[in-house]
Amino acid sequence: MSAALEVIAPGLHTSVQDLGRFGSQRMGVPVSGALDTVSLRLANLLVGNPPGAGALEILHHGPTLNVRAESVRIALASGGEVEVPGDYRRSIPACRSARIRRGEIFQVGALSRAACCYLAVEGGFAIAPCLGSLSTYARGSLGGFEGRALREGDLVPLALSEAGARAELELPRPPTGGRDQTIRVVLGPQHDHFTRRSVAAFLAADYTVSASADRMGIRLDGPSLRHNHKGYDIISDAVATGAIQVPGTGQPIILLADHQTTGGYPKIATIISADLPIVGRRVPGDPIRFTAVNQQQAEQIRRAQEAELQELIRAVRPVPAGKDLDLDSLYHGNLISGVVSGDD
């Protein structure tokens, strides 16, 4: 039988995502892809994949999976923890690769501080791309595993039947960007549809992520914004990921990965690409404050962030001796059961 991960429990919403599906927006196909592309890239890096390989995006509560292969190397980034509850019970922290063997069941429980994390497997999944991407666009039943989030009983095919023989890797530190970081936006493309006072209020206000948040967007709780005489209907135009649209109710909505390619509401501002992964990680109740930069500054911030990320990638190292939990010694050695934590 071919190698696969068997879904014992799917979690809240677990789907295959990569860096997105580009080139089809002119046909009305959303970009989709990871909400937090930085964490997706890091998870892939730790298992030796190209940065844009398809991985499992986990929202809020992770899946329970059974290894139907000789072994599989996995890594989780940037949050969460993998629990392997069987005979060789252990937990694998985020940002570190590990090997799991045939018949072992592993799970990612509730994420405590982030809305999403990424589970990458060495070699990736044996799934054919759709329109050049493995990303799942569930509303359009397109891409990923059968065009949908995982369900109990699914066998998600693995490209490799066995993990490669090599040292496990870890990140020396998680990527930066906390829950309280102010989110930078570029005003526009339609901030001229709002009263001057509303634009000022938007930049001064304390918003919070409402319960109405999914892969398509995040509705914000906070001050309502007023449109000026130009009103809240625009002739539909294209939408960039991170755009903040304001319908007639005045409550802003941040448009995320699965957003429609076009829309008819004015967009007061657009979150800069460097800050999108941070926004993707925010959970309902988290605060959101905005500050404005211009387009050139936003481009520079992104380039600086990428340089920083490359530095973090260069700092990836083998898991130091003693911290490495070698599976073979675990199976054949003298370890008496008990929780082996990778954190100590």
Partner: peptide
Amino acid sequence: FLPSGDTALV
């Protein structure tokens, strides 16, 4: 020319 963040220009 309208900016739409740092990944789109309208």
